[in-house]
């Protein structure tokens, strides 16, 4: 996408430069640019073809990111507040609620059930997935997955008032043993 954008920008700039070079060299008036080539070809056919290709691939990538039933799936509740996050993880003896730190197992798909309470927030852990809004009155689902154990930074991405800048949280991805321990209520 980046290379294509750079190439197209370069194409426009080169065509512009050539227009000035040619313009200086030739006799006044009397030259016609073929409308079919400029408008039908470069103006319509080229962008349409490129965009359709791009759209097709984006749709395929997007479909792969949509949350679907998976056997290994873990569902974790996340609710955004001004200005903290509450997470509800499944534990061995019922749900475990944590504030501002979310615990997930690494290597397994996790569906985050996003629930809003006051204003709109947006759940975003850049290393794990795209963002999804937390809208009061609606429940949204976001599929995330950490490929390795570790700590990942999260940030509210929708302007939510005074302390929006500090509306952050952390995601801790555990290996299988760590996750089991967490679920038993042993804080690592």
């Amino acid at each position: 996408m980046l290379a294509g954008a750079a190439a197209l920008t370069l194409l426009v700039m080169v065509l512009l430069a050539l227009a000035f070079r040619r313009g200086g060299a030739e006799a006044p008036g009397g030259r016609r640019a073929p409308a079919g080539l400029w408008l039908g070809g470069l103006g319509v056919a080229m962008p349409t073809t490129l965009l359709l290709l791009l759209l097709g691939s984006a749709l395929v990538v997007g479909e792969r990111m949509v949350a679907r039933a998976a056997p290994e799936r873990v569902v974790i509740g996340a609710s955004g507040h001004q200005w903290y996050w509450d997470f509800t993880q499944p534990g061995a003896d019922g749900p475990i609620v944590t504030r501002d730190v979310m615990h997930i197992p690494a290597g397994r798909p996790v569906d985050v059930r996003l629930q809003g309470n006051d204003v709109i927030h947006s759940f975003w852990v850049p290393r794990l997935a795209g963002k999804m809004d937390v809208v009061p009155g609606h429940v949204n689902l976001l599929r995330i997955e950490a490929t390795r154990p570790g700590v990942f930074e999260g940030q509210c991405a929708e302007f939510c008032g005074l302390e929006h800048a500090r509306h952050r949280f952390r995601v801790v991805a555990h290996d299988a043993a760590g996750w089991a321990a967490f679920q038993r209520g042993q804080q690592p």
Binding site: R22, G23, R32, A33, A35, L39, V44, P47
Partner: peptide, 13 residues
């Protein structure tokens, strides 16, 4: 995009 190329074509001619 069509307009962009119409403008560049205008410069060319």
């Amino acid at each position: 995009g069509l307009q962009i190329f119409a403008w560049i074509g205008t410069l060319w001619q």
